[in-house]
Design a protein around this nucleic acid. Structure first.
Length: 393
RNA sequence: GGGGAGAUUCCCGAGCGGUCAAAGGGAGCAGACUGUAAAUCUGCCGCCGUAGUGCUUCGGAGGUUCGAAUCCUCCUCUCCCCA
């Protein structure tokens, strides 16, 4: 294995990073790694309770891949033990205690998704319960004594970063990465490693990606996320619906285009040589190609054009099968049944507002009754994008 | 330990005996305009087959009243100030 010169590696690693503490140390580590022909150990911790990876997570994962491409080892650390404590950094509420089996299952889910981005050969998956669960109270006291807190904080607020820091000790991490919200925890790792007479890890933080609303950071609980397991069609739609300004952010953090290339695109849009929608379409295709394939990305685009520009029916529509009934079915009730409305009143409202289409024509009266006494098929559309095919059988 | 302030529909926040299913804003949803963008405009935004002197909702439990989100009592929780 031959490594690129430290300077060149550094340049790649720097792209997109918010902060590197400290750059000189990273450079020194890269140089040593090169001269000794030893890869660096790059550690990133993940929460075991939320195995649905979304675009926000991929920002850091992309950087992990950069390390892999440069020949380094990446440790995908599943915080099954720290998960019990709960990270005080986020707004996370009390977490349910996960069983061994659940953790295993979540880990499996992680693996499936993670390797869409990371190189499976160069990725080590570890669980921190491996070393943390077996620690005695004495060990904990000893560990805690290595860190002085200036201000008085809650015990678990203190425990979490400490445990995370100990992970770095156990793994002898050279680099730890995380979102900017992780900075404090990552820095604790440096200090604790010093206490253990290890060379402190370099801390690299990546920006937090805004969700589709463009305001809050992307998170599952806020519902503003784009999951990498979503269908190409869904991802395409979600990306197309983000604000134009936000698209540049996604370009920077979710593609491997260089800053120069991105600036070029921006300029194109500013000079009206490139339609912003086209730029967004390209973005969506790039992202989909990463998690699925270029062919699927192209298909998603074609589908999108058909459904929204030509106003045709998508080819994959969710289907619901209902038994035939001799009595006519009140339409609003049907909407509730298939999950397109919350209540009859809600359904009625949607109809009154002209948002409901049945078999291609607008439903204009909430009093509509549908015959359901013989097998039949209907296509219902609510709003611009919700389709359901109902089958009576 | 002492003294204050408060808990309202998804969120913020008004209401302080009837005219309150509860102002206003945000979010969300639908429509118009578009590039399913943003911004903007319009409408909706508790449930009940659209109806009523209807039902359920204003932290929880009781009480006072013809009538309570609004008053009283107790309870739970949150915040602030003094020690």
């Amino acid at each position: 294995m031959s490594f690129l010169p430290a300077e060149e590696q550094l340049e790649i690693l720097r792209k997109g990073a918010t902060e590197i503490l400290r750059v000189e140390e990273l450079k020194a580590k890269l140089e040593r790694s090169r001269s000794e022909d030893q890869p660096l150990r790059v550690k990133v911790g993940f929460d075991p309770s939320a195995p649905d990876i979304h675009l926000g997570h991929t920002v850091v994962m992309r950087k992990m891949r950069h390390f892999q491409e440069l020949g380094h080892d990446v440790i995908f650390l599943i915080g099954d033990f720290t998960g019990l404590i709960g990270d005080p950094t986020g707004v996370s509420k009390t977490r349910p205690v996960l069983t061994r089996a659940q953790v295993e299952q979540n880990a499996e889910t992680y693996r499936k998704q993670v390797f869409k981005i990371l190189d499976p050969v160069k990725t080590r998956v570890e669980f921190n319960s491996q070393w943390l669960a077996s620690m005695s109270s004495e060990d904990w006291v000893r560990l805690a004594s290595k860190y002085t807190v200036a201000r008085i904080i809650g015990i678990h607020e203190f425990l979490y970063p400490l445990a995370q820091a100990y992970d770095s000790v156990a793994l002898k991490a050279d680099v730890e990465m995380g979102g900017t919200d992780q900075k404090f925890n990552l820095l604790v790792g440096r200090e604790i490693m010093r206490e253990f007479h290890l060379e402190p890890q370099v801390v690299l933080t990546m920006p937090l990606l805004e969700g589709t609303d463009g305001v809050e950071k992307m998170s599952k609980s806020l519902g503003n996320y784009i999951g990498i397991n979503e269908t190409p069609r869904e991802i395409f739609g979600k990306i197309l619906s983000i604000n134009d300004d936000l698209m540049w952010r996604y370009y920077e953090l979710c593609t491997d285009l260089t800053l120069v290339q991105i600036a070029e695109l921006k300029k194109g849009v500013a000079e009206k040589k490139l339609h912003p929608k086209q730029a967004k379409v390209d973005l969506a295709k790039r992202i989909i190609a990463d998690f699925h394939s270029a062919a699927e990305a192209a298909a998603a685009e074609a589908e999108f054009e058909r459904v929204f520009v030509s106003r045709e029916t998508p080819d994959a529509v969710e289907e619901v099968t209902l038994p035939c009934e001799s009595a006519p079915l009140w339409f609003p009730r049907l909407l509730v049944k298939v999950g397109l409305a919350k209540s009859n009143g809600d359904a009625t409202r949607l109809i009154n507002q002209g948002g409901v289409t049945l078999d291609g024509s607008r439903v204009d009266s909430p009093g509509l009754e549908l015959r359901a006494d013989a097998p039949a098929e209907h296509l219902i559309k609510v709003g611009k994008r919700r389709f359901i095919r109902v089958r009576f059988r």
